[in-house]
Design a protein around this nucleic acid. Structure first.
Lengths: 337, 337
DNA sequence: CGCTGGCACTCCCCTGGCGTGAGTGCTAAT
DNA sequence: ATTAGCACTCACGCCAGGGGAGTGCCAGCG
């Protein structure tokens, strides 16, 4: 009973602070959130909550604001809210006429940033194994070649290899023909075996190994972890409440995709459904004033790509989580073609 | 003589303001920039410059700052400065070990943002006509097909077409074979003729036209105008002197790539060498507090891709222009392989 | 025992007044 | 044409004071 009300108080403080971005006081809570108790009672609860480190006051005579820990408690005790119907519909209508993968991702990231009014980030679907359909090898400059692998599931992977010699046109063409013959229709494992044999032939070109790696790598799903962003301007919105230098370091962290990607991976690993990192939980100085809501997406059971929203700790968690979840679900359905 | 000194005064005001971000007064100019005249004289010149709208004072008892028009005059009367040797060397060393086009562009944009300490933007090289090397057509879902065109100059273009029917596998394969036979080794113009004939054959599949367009379009150079950014965090640097909401609208304008691209194109069109737009000259509300320094790059004579730096009007124009020019030159040399 | 009303206290924030200093425009002298 | 001098303006920093929001605590009440 008592625990119950304290939780309600915390809940109300979070919601109030998120809505107004001002510390919320006991009177405001009592009148507005009809908890049925007087300000004095709430003050007692507040003292207890502060004791536990869930809320804090910026200065002695101000209301309370949630701490990172407070947000954490709030988020953990949140019943999953559904995305409002109109927004739900927006997702399908807006995304359904995407023409291809990159268009889908592009639209999704834009949509997600609009729904959440935060920075949205989506990692391109990490690619599954697929059979090799065709390998093109194109000469580039003196000692380089472009390897293009088209896979049976309609992906195109390209990579560049350094030849280390200047092969004759004939040799070049022979290699291209042989590689195609050796791999056509094979999955990565089989292709790897065949190419290993092929590369080991006597008087083989010295770059056969590199070429084999490139082809097998492409069949395995490529290595690039491309990430796209949208909505960075939301960081600078006045009601985001971020200092100017905080904005700068967040932008920097975002451009440094590696950091963010690792973080997203971590989050997706130890969470089902939607994962949330709040403020200091990101373990990055630059992101200590921001929270991240992330989810994996991909074919059911094999969610291996990531998407998320990033914004100030003072964000609308239920709403953001609902939006992230909804977009992740939609993408999961759509991406498996 | 008089004109001469006034110009020097303007020059000094611009440099002073850019360096300190504070309005610069007559005394500071007299002592620091050894113009050999007294503050009073400088005040007279300042009054004249203000009369002409080249400088302004933020309030009655403050020093002067350049107006957009003042910066414009400054830039127009600038001898092209060379990039300092160390930075010059940085370009070659840093960019020379890029492995392929996208790596080169990626490195370039990052480097440019570091050299200028501004937001750097590079448009992917706009692609030249090339011969068709190979066309792959891959089925995707029921009524879609992925068309991949590998061109002789080592590009890979992909696009998706809507079939509007469900062709049999046989028909599909026949089409793929025929298209390859019809276009192999041909440039866009020839390929277009051959494909037109081919598409007009009796009992041709209904999507032959679309397919032909896709192939010819790819040979023509593709349609995508991809743009990459780096250094957005520079907008939020304290010494950039941009208001928070200005940062927001600039970020928005950047994400809205269309606007920026059109602007860059305009700039490149009516300028040789490096082009500069200052503040209001961008004709965009969101960019009214920022300047853009841009240059075209590409094979000599056919500079058709763009790169540039974007920052607050109070920027180091000579330095930025030198960096943009240098990177553009480097890319022009490198990209034509 | 938990809740409530009352009350004193703290401290932010706004306002207004004041002195200071930087920088100017003007005028008269060189 | 340039310069020295001088009066003037005005942002800025500082300080004090009042108002107000919000708190913590205490005593009383159901």
């Amino acid at each position: 009973m008592l625990e119950e009300r304290r939780r309600a108080v915390l809940h109300a403080i979070v919601e109030g602070y998120v809505a107004t971005s001002e510390p919320v006081g006991s009177r405001a809570l009592a009148t507005h959130h009809h908890l049925g108790v007087s300000p004095a009672t709430i003050r007692n609860d507040m003292a207890a909550l502060e004791e536990e480190g869930l809320i804090a006051q910026p200065h002695t005579s101000a209301g309370r604001i949630p701490t990172d820990k407070g947000y954490r408690y709030f988020v953990d005790h949140l019943a999953a809210t559904a995305l409002p119907e109109p927004q739900r519909r927006a997702i399908t209508t807006f995304l359904s006429d995407a023409v291809d993968l990159s268009d889908t991702v592009e639209r999704s990231v834009r949509l997600l940033s609009q729904l959440t009014r935060q920075v949205a980030v989506i990692q391109y679907p990490s690619l599954r194994e697929a059979k090799v359909r065709r390998v093109e090898i194109v000469r580039m400059g003196q000692e380089r070649a472009l390897v293009v692998v088209v896979s049976a599931d309609a992906r195109v992977e390209q990579s560049t290899i350094l030849l280390g010699e200047e092969p004759t046109d004939d040799a070049f063409e022979r290699v291209a023909r042989e590689v195609n013959e050796a791999t056509q229709g094979l999955g990565p494992a089989a292709a790897e075996r065949r190419l290993a044999e092929w590369a080991a032939r006597p008087q083989q070109v010295p770059w056969a190994g590199l070429l084999a790696d490139a082809v097998v790598g492409a069949a395995r799903g490529g290595t690039v972890e491309r990430v796209v962003f949208s909505g960075t301007q939301n960081l600078a919105r006045a009601d985001a409440g971020l200092e100017q230098d905080a904005i700068g370091s967040v932008l920097e962290a975002i451009e440094e995709q590696v950091v963010l990607l690792r973080l997203l991976h971590e989050m997706a690993r130890d969470a089902t459904d939607v994962a949330v990192r709040i403020g200091g939980e990101t373990h990055h100085e630059a992101l200590s004033k921001t929270s991240i809501v992330a989810a994996g997406y991909g074919p059911p059971g094999g969610e291996s790509s990531l998407l998320g929203a990033l914004g100030p700790t003072r964000m609308d968690y239920p709403g953001t989580m609902a939006a992230v979840r909804a977009v992740a679900r939609y993408l999961s359905r759509v991406v498996e073609m």
